[in-house]
Design a protein around this nucleic acid. Structure first.
Length: 569
DNA sequence: GCCGTTTTCGGCCCGACTGTTTTCAGTCG
């Protein structure tokens, strides 16, 4: 019995219980048990007693025991008999939870998205206690959204899987070099699968290891050059591995990175010169096939500069080649201006974050914990801000080559006021203003809230300006044209939040900001040292909008940054 | 269901807000 299967079964049980309207604490107990198993590095056989794990007691241990001895869970089977499968996707509808779905099922016999839609259209739902006409309308709207949802997976779901596969490939001595390719490499918001190019002379050994060490649901193909599998995850993810010889690496990587349209343009360019591009190399008129040591050499062969993957759309990258050198690169980044520590909801102390930032080669950064309104995130009161500043100053004293600024991520409250008085704000080096509440207010109200922040002389930046989560929620729908105009008028920075859940501002809005000449900061919003890696995603994403390096605040030197933040002091 | 006792039940992170009702589930981080 696979540990992953047990984790997934426990989570499935939680899901079905939720649909029954079970006690939420009971539901979360099953989820916690699953998380406890997942969080423990040991395999099942290495644990003599699972109930020793915090979060696993008699009930969940019985489920595990059941799975180990019979290969299935009788509890889950019982639940599946009582709860229609068609109810599962309804949990994804905003506004509907287990209790409401259970009620819809019990009272109206609803068992699927289709029957829910029919009941709403027949005005049956509004007759139930706790439901009304407005709810009906909302459900219908969200059902339409659900149907429109593509099969593509969001980047935040793929990123940890890519990381895991990279670690596995990196550990194989038979693998000479490798790279993720496809739309993930192009920093697409969503992808239908993950592609890897792997250089090896030992195809057999690499294939065996991939098939044995990955948690696989289905092997689609396992040949000499291509291995295609579906991984056994919460949502199944397809992964293709292309095994190539070292000489083919550059052209194979280019070919499988795409985009399709980019490749078409490249092949046209080659054809005009009497050459032919394939994944194996560039064939000359005499039949001789050229190969390249890397992609840069490949592009150079066609008199092109290195084109970063994220701008390979098959359009502008060929028209604006002279601008490519103005795009930001990871090594241009000197700072991260948005992160959290244990003072609010982060996982590491000020000093631990500081050291991790120094290790990344940054010159300065800003600690920006949540403000008092966000009680669940342990937001800071003015008194705690003062104490935190002392800790930041102590860190700076011990590290003269680097500087940590004291900031805040301050909430813009639902009533349109700011969470701190000006007296508090003016003592801070850097002030971020953010919306984390009342997303469903009218655009007018949302804009009024944002205007308050824009007009405050102590606010420097608006973080994640739309509040969207990729493939999950739309955000609070601000009027971006207006917001960008205000940012220009009041001299504020807009954020490109690099967390793969957000990527907010999106490409379209970043382009608008650039045209308006509004400075952008690429920030990780790290709640953990490992989240600092998101800077790479942010930089690659920024390239999609052709943001010029000098408009990106955190490429500035410490002196330039300081001049900006001191303006209104 | 799990945990941890001032051992066998009460709390489980939380406080404001929305839409619905007149007490509450769901949503935000």
């Amino acid at each position: 019995m696979n540990k992953k299967t047990i984790i997934r079964t426990l989570e499935k049980i939680a899901l079905y219980m939720e649909l029954q309207g079970e006690n939420p604490f009971k539901v979360s107990a099953f989820r916690k048990a699953a998380a406890a198993l997942e969080g423990d590095e040991r395999s099942l056989s290495e644990m003599e007693d699972v109930t020793k794990l915090k979060g696993i007691g008699k009930g969940t241990a019985a489920v595990i025991e059941d799975l180990m001895t019979t290969g299935q869970s009788s509890l889950l089977k019982e639940l599946e008999e009582v709860v229609p499968k068609g109810l599962l996707p309804l949990l994804k509808l905003p506004g509907l939870g287990g209790k409401k779905i259970a009620k819809l099922h019990q009272e109206l016999g609803i068992d699927s998205a289709e029957s829910l839609k029919a009941a709403c259209e027949a005005c049956k739902v509004r007759e139930l206690a706790g439901f009304a006409a407005k709810t009906e309308e909302k459900i219908l709207k969200e059902l339409a959204n659900l149907a429109n949802r593509s099969e593509r997976l969001p980047i935040w779901q793929l990123e940890p899987v890519v990381l895991q596969i990279e670690a596995l490939l990196g550990s194989m001595k038979e693998v000479e070099r490798f790279s993720v390719a496809g739309s993930f490499r192009r920093a697409a918001e969503t992808s239908k699968d993950i592609d890897f190019i792997v250089v090896t002379e030992a195809v057999e050994a690499v294939r065996e290891q991939l098939l044995n060490k990955l948690s696989i649901q289905e092997v689609v193909a396992a040949g000499d050059t291509k291995i295609s599998v579906i991984l056994d995850l919460d949502e199944p993810i397809s992964v293709d591995f292309r095994l190539v010889k070292d000489a083919e690496y550059a052209t194979a990587l280019h070919h499988f990175t795409g985009s399709k349209d980019h490749n078409v343009r490249m092949r046209q360019i080659a054809k005009a010169r009497g050459e032919k591009i394939s994944e194996y190399g560039v064939e000359q008129e005499d039949g001789n096939v050229l190969t390249f040591k890397d992609e840069a050499a490949f592009f150079a062969h066609f008199d092109l500069p290195f084109i970063p993957p994220s701008i390979r759309t098959g359009t502008t990258e060929f028209d604006k080649t002279e601008d490519i050198h103005t795009l930001v690169k990871l090594e241009d980044i000197r700072a991260d201006l948005h992160m959290h520590t244990t003072w609010s909801d982060g996982a590491y102390s000020v000093a631990e974050m500081g050291k991790a930032l120094i290790a990344r080669g940054y010159q300065y950064s800003v600690i920006t914990d949540h403000s008092q309104f966000l009680k669940v995130a342990n937001g800071l009161t003015p008194e705690r801000l003062i104490k935190q500043r002392a800790e930041i100053e102590a860190f700076n004293k011990a590290h003269s080559e680097f500087h940590l600024y004291a900031g805040t991520e301050m909430d813009i409250l639902p009533d349109g006021t700011l969470d701190f008085e000006d007296e508090v704000l003016k003592e801070l080096d850097f002030v971020i203003a953010s919306i984390h509440s009342s997303f469903t207010q009218s655009q007018e109200k949302i804009m009024a809230r944002l205007l308050t922040a824009m007009q405050n002389p102590y606010v420097h930046m608006i973080a994640h300006p739309t509040g969207r989560i990729i493939e999950d929620r739309q955000g609070y729908n601000p009027d971006m044209e207006q917001l960008i105009a205000w940012a220009k008028e009041y001299g504020k920075i807009l954020e490109l939040n690099a967390n793969p859940y957000r990527l907010d501002l999106c490409v379209e809005h970043l382009e608008m900001a650039m045209v308006a000449g509004v400075p952008v900061a690429i920030n990780t919003d790290a709640h953990d040292i490992t989240h600092l890696r998101f800077m790479d995603i942010g930089v690659r994403y920024a390239n999609k909008a052709w943001l010029k390096k000098d408009m990106i605040v955190n490429t500035w030197t410490r002196e330039q940054f300081e001049a900006f933040i001191r303006r209104n002091k």
